[in-house]
Design a protein around this nucleic acid. Sequence first.
RNA 1: GCCGCCAUCGUCUAGGGGUUAAGGACGCCGCCCUCUCAAGGCGGAGAUCACGGGUUCGAAUCCCGUUGGCGGCACCA
Length: 481
Amino acid sequence: MNNKVRVRFAPSPTGYLHLGSVRTALYNWLFARQNQGVFILRIEDTDRARSTEEAIKVIIEGLQWLGLNWDEGPYFQMERLDIYKKYAEQLIQEEKAYYCYCTPEELEDIRQSALAEKKPPKYDGRCRYLTEEEKKEYEKQERKPVVRFKTPRKGETTFVDLIHGEVKFENLLLDDFVLLKSDSVPTYNFAVVTDDQLMEITHVLRGDDHISNTPRQILLYQAFNWQLPKFAHFPMILGIDRGRLSKRHGAVSVLEYKKQGYLPEALINYLALLGWGTKESEEIFASEELIKNFSLERCGKSAAVFDLQKLVWLNSLYIRQIPIEKFYFYGREELEKANLIPENTDENYIKKALALEQEKIKLLTDIPNLLEFFFKEDIIYREEAINKVLRKEGTDKILDDSAVFLNAQENFNADHLEEIVRKYCAEKNLNTKQVFHPLRVAVSGKTEGPSLFHMLELLGKERVIKRIEKAKIFTKIVVSG
RNA sequence: GCCGCCAUCGUCUAGGGGUUAAGGACGCCGCCCUCUCAAGGCGGAGAUCACGGGUUCGAAUCCCGUUGGCGGCACCA
């Protein structure tokens, strides 16, 4: 028997690709890669009302962005209806399933009265033993039946979860759940089991929320005499209020994180850490290291709160680490989106500007704001910068002098400029800060930014002088009131 | 209501009977470095290991119970 690991990610295409789903996908992917197994993508689109083409696109795009490549699929359950029908019929034949003609209204009544008696709201199985006459009567009424499973009414179903250990359920608590809906589309539990069997899935790795579906599925495996896969259920990801992570906690869609300027490797790293850790509590893992180190045994059992601050930190760390060529690729995109790059701008100029700010970028989307002054001719002088720096006593004289001696320089490289500015400070008996700060504000409009002299070098003499002249206006305005 | 899962700093976690008045990371605070902002370095605050009972010479660690949180109980997945 072939014992190659085969796992799957089986999202339903309703809406966006949720972070929790992505982590499930990631863990499946890691497990497959680590075991030289097969990672399958299966789209569970049997909910016709909610499934959309758009959502399918989003799943595929999201996984691709994150580099979670799959080896088989995508399979679509709606293209496999004949298969499910065939297996449902087999169960009916073997009297392990039956047609149920109850209407939604009747089912609702059953539920309500059960609830009223403080009993579990489950189907009572009334169609289990219909006579031929009764069936005919219903057929005459043109009722479309569903197929229900004859759930055993005694015994218990036990399984060993790879991360939770033994889990036990009383069969009596389960009801005769639906296998095929009245339109012959399978329900989740039925489709999952037949697909996992036919696709030879060896390990079912999914979210905690499926734990209570597992006994139903196991009962189906047993009805078919199929061998059980191994199960592992990952804990949920929660929002700060410890509720299920949802839109009210902020972005929850993977592609939204792409849009907001996160790097895929940062998101992967962060998600991996949410529910899994090493003995040494290391934090930084590239994908290859995750593949090597990941293990189901080291997955936690308790739900984890999603912490955006830590993601941001990881993101800034990854941004600092990427080589300038790659950073240029991302940076240029952001600058173009913000319409900041004038025509005929030299590639090297952009690259150098980016290099000067790289270590400060937390999100790629920070780039336009931080680099604006390198590209716009009319820079904005921030009010705080004007008040705190430009309006200081003596600043006008310093800017005057600077314009003169900077203008006299042939050599405009950073080291040289630093030398002469420091010399000027010494001659005039000025604290370096008294000169550096006004120059910085004059040239960038801000009090914070990259190293002053590298900034001057990059901007070039012409622009520097022009900006210094412009900044002088602010030194003369006297605040009234 | 019933069933199930879970429970260590604000958050993610390490630690699975004694070497732990619990280690790391994010965040927060302070200092250093420094032309600013970051980054970096150093340090600090922050957890009576949910609570109550056992077991044991000894329990964050094992067992039971309670509480709380979450999940499931659909012709949703």
